[in-house]
Design a protein around this nucleic acid. Sequence first.
DNA 1: GATAGTATAATTGTATACAATAATAAGAGT
DNA 2: ACTCTTATTATTGTATACAATTATACTATC
Lengths: 212, 212
Amino acid sequence: MLEHKNHTLADQVFERLESDILSGKYARGEILVEMEICQDLGVSRTPVREALRRLQQEHLVEEHGKGLKVLGVTHEDLEDIMELRLRLEGYAAARAAERITDEQLKELKETLDLQEFYLTKHDSDHIKGMDSKFHELVYKFSDSVVIYDTLLPLHKKVQRYRKRSVENDSRAAHSVEEHRVIYEALAARDPKAAEAAILNHTQNAKKHIMKG
Amino acid sequence: MLEHKNHTLADQVFERLESDILSGKYARGEILVEMEICQDLGVSRTPVREALRRLQQEHLVEEHGKGLKVLGVTHEDLEDIMELRLRLEGYAAARAAERITDEQLKELKETLDLQEFYLTKHDSDHIKGMDSKFHELVYKFSDSVVIYDTLLPLHKKVQRYRKRSVENDSRAAHSVEEHRVIYEALAARDPKAAEAAILNHTQNAKKHIMKG
DNA sequence: GATAGTATAATTGTATACAATAATAAGAGT
DNA sequence: ACTCTTATTATTGTATACAATTATACTATC
């Protein structure tokens, strides 16, 4: 197995499989068989099964007689996801503007600065990483587990489609600029501005993502 | 163990625990220990563990050294849930209006009629059941797994707080009337009307639920 | 050659055994 | 009596063994 950040094997297996499904490494329709995963990762069936049950709960896989069928995220799913995000991101950002602390603001700024740095290096993998982190932080700083649990999974599921956007230099640059506007609104503790900024960002993101 | 609708023991354990947490049978902060559940339900640890991992994935419980702490749904969670629903239900209903089939419409009407029947009998448990089914059907008929997976968990989590609403005769009657308006809009395949009707219903539901 | 029925093998579902870890209790020293 | 250390116990994490189910392959019959 790979990394050891998350203690249990079951957690590691889950993250590995989730990532491989969301990145498209496992194709839609592919059948996952417990023992194959066990052999690939060198663990027993117990942690693999627990990971699979969690993936099932997230509708990333579904039962299929023998094995589990990979569902992944279709282009139609993507459209729905972006429609939901258009309706929710503003609320999350407005709440974050009302509640964000100075330390949290600092963490957000560091993420933003890093994203700008990677932009100058044309390092799209890290740009994408910082992009995801920025949004995850906004969800977190909205200080609502409901918002976090609802929006983070939606955001994660866009991952595979976001790749193209981020590899487009011009879009990546605009995206970082939009993040900065969001950050400024949060720093000013201005809920309305934050809502408007993130709505604009989400609309642009939708446009570019759906084109692909 | 109880019923046998869902084949595997793991599924049954999950539904039982989820229901007991959402209904408040397990108090917030309570510690769940695997073996106790095993003894209560007469099954081994394997299905119990799989159920617990799924509950964790839904943030209904969280790690706590020994055992899992029951999180349940707080009054603050409830406010967030209703805010998110206010922003999403309209989209779900509008989509359903565009896509609902005649059979689906019939199923929805049967649910609505049953709810009215139980209303005359003052059978609040069944009223609640039909209320939940009505909304679940709307999510389903929106024909988007993203909508379904996002809204159904939010709706489920209101369960415990909806009880009071439904036991209030006047509110229960108004709620059924609002359902009827939603149904009529769907039957007319009128997305805008459906959106307006469900928004109105959700606003009223929020008012009454938050009072409690 | 097609089809139904049966045997075989592969896969999942469940229980249990073992290992590792963390909490609690007991005991020694001050 | 208090605190630190150590032993014990309880609980979770992981692997494996067994049971039940379901798909696949084979054979017999038409």
